[in-house]
Write a protein that binds this DNA or RNA. Structure first.
Lengths: 345, 345
DNA sequence: GGGACTTGAGTTACCCGTAACGCTGCTATA
DNA sequence: TATAGCAGCGTTACGGGTAACTCAAGTCCC
């Protein structure tokens, strides 16, 4: 089935050089536009490069110069979350514009997966790493410190990053949402999410949210943390579970917009009127929120800007330009129409 | 700011070997579990590996063995499209399970971007490539043929792939949707999409759709191809544009579900009743479709299975197991509630 | 006790580029 | 005319591993 496929018929620089009747070094110089050769020689070499379909072997280049590669390892928890997918997209675009390549790592929100991936990706001598989240396993931390390459931690702002950091303050974003809901007169609220791990941004948001609610005399009646993905359907049945088991909840805050949409659909399917009967607040401001009739109350995070900033910080560091170690990318609360308009107690 | 960071303080195998008082080769054997050493030697080497925090340099390994790496290049048009994001996710998970890494390439739906990326990624000696789409630039084709590595073309089924192929027949999926709508009595339909390029799957679907409609005496009154991304908002304003410029459209077929949702929202915002006043049909079956009150008429593509299959075909080929060259992953038309229930002319 | 085999190493060459240096022959200048 | 300078190109060594080979010492069997 694949006799020829296996054979490695790669053309090396030496073959190009021989075909052109020059030394390997001269061919190398031509290909790197280094100068030190005649126009005639250049033409001959380039002709052979074309004829033989020569593709340089970058492994050898990296190897020869004892440099790092143009790989940048990028770890992302999962791509089911649209926001992360778009962060990845903007990172990759920016890195690509600078001639760097993304080596992907999906950590499934676990530090162990991240550690395994870090070990592997470091063995490829990447130019740098971009990691989602500020929490890493002890062994991961040790490897990262020894790696001696630029590292950007994204998503969760961190005043003392391993190296560099860009993101938002999740505690504050939860806190602001809590205060906003309190300001609208909500006192008994619920939460639906999926994190059962304190070491992540969603938990941090929840902490901030609780602090704001409880600090103002309200109460987070129930926090539901499902063992599922943070997507539409869990939002749907999570809401059913929350409202079915607890009375008096006036408003529900969700881990993200996808879950909030699920909750919104659940409420509408049960003929509850949002926001009259119940308030719904999401987080992340998914694109779909802009077309749905009832604007979802949410928190906007400039995720494209976040990805771009991460890639830019990486590139700045790689070219030794001065750059701030941390950058707060900011967020914006979006009032929306899925919570009551003003205090109506 | 980063004096130490620049310095390359990597520990090499030679240093480990010296510290352990053995030759480089012996240390290499220990690390590869090759056998041919005493338990005592093994322990000594492993102890030094730990002490020095040695991480193997895989570039060197690949280089030395003149083998391919454990990289697999994966090209995806964009991650704004949830379906592609999830295909990528399932590919990466499966590859990861086999100890391979994904090098990402976002082609932005252009063959030129794909070609550039292919050139770069091939220079890293990847074990194989997974490419979205069956169309490639002439130079890309040449490089791919010379590369001598397994290639899986995904998404768009292709009876004569470069090497292997997994996907669905997009023409058929469009055709089936057309026939379905005809069967419900629709005769004058519209289309809203974003592709202005024949060389892609969306165009192929549209062709199939038109064939079915026109073959049955109906007509595709207007095909609107926006210069925008295939997301919610373009679906919204595209529908406005379509319905504003053309009378008598009974049903609209969209390039994908995101656009269809945008259209649905537009219709509802204008107090049009779906499906009584107008029918809406999407494609791709986004997760959100499962929670929205009115089930969107769509075509389900098993995208997770698609990604898995692609990775499995790649791995099978890499380990020289027999594997079918092409695999039709199938699709399923989802009737939904956004088109009329039966012929009601 | 001698030859064959096994065990546990070490040695050498090589993968494909690039840095550093060397060499040749021509030109410009004093 | 001597010499410095430089364009143009070649030679050598090297990076971090691994394949293939070699080799010494111990074991086994007849």
């Amino acid at each position: 089935m694949s006799e020829k496929i296996i054979k490695n018929n790669k053309v090396s620089l030496l073959e190009v050089a021989r075909a052109a009747g020059v030394s390997k070094m001269t061919a190398s110089r031509v290909l790197r536009n280094e100068g030190g050769y005649s126009e005639q020689t250049r033409a001959k070499v380039m002709q052979k490069v074309d004829e033989l379909g020569y593709l340089p072997n970058r492994l050898a280049t990296v190897f020869a110069g004892d440099k790092t590669s143009t790989f940048v390892g990028v770890s992302i928890p999962d791509l089911g979350n649209e926001v992360f997918a778009q962060v990845l997209e903007s990172i990759d675009r920016k890195l690509g514009a600078f001639g760097h390549q993304t080596v992907l790592g999906l950590t499934q929100h676990t530090l162990q997966e991240e550690e395994n991936w870090i070990r592997t990706v470091l063995s490829w001598q990447p130019a740098g790493l971009i990691l989602t989240g500020r929490y890493h396993s002890p062994r991961a931390l040790e490897m990262l410190k020894n790696a001696g390459i630029p590292i950007v931690e994204i998503w969760d702002l961190n005043s003392s990053p391993l190296d560099m950091c860009v993101g938002i303050n999740h505690f504050d974003s939860g806190f602001d949402m809590g205060r906003y809901l309190i300001g609208l007169g909500y006192r008994h609220v619920g939460y639906v999410g999926t994190s059962h791990d304190v070491a992540n941004a969603a938990s941090t948001r929840l902490s901030g949210f609780c602090k704001a609610i409880e600090g103002a005399g309200g109460s987070v009646v129930k926090q539901l943390c499902l063992h599922d993905t943070a997507t539409f359907y869990p939002g749907f049945y999570g809401t059913e579970q929350l409202l079915g088991s607890t009375d008096g909840i006036e408003c529900v805050f969700y881990q993200n917009d996808a879950m909030a949409f699920g909750g919104l659909q659940y409420c509408e399917s049960r003929r509850m009127v949002v926001p009259d009967d119940i308030g719904i607040a999401g987080w992340g401001n998914l694109p779909i929120a802009s077309v749905v009739g009832k604007r979802l109350t949410s928190v906007h995070v400039p995720h494209l800007k976040l990805g771009q900033a991460a890639a830019e910080m990486m590139m700045a560091r790689l070219s030794d330009e001065p750059i701030a170690r941390t950058r707060d990318i900011g967020f914006r609360l979006i009032p929306g129409a899925t919570v009551r308009a003003s205090d109506s107690r």
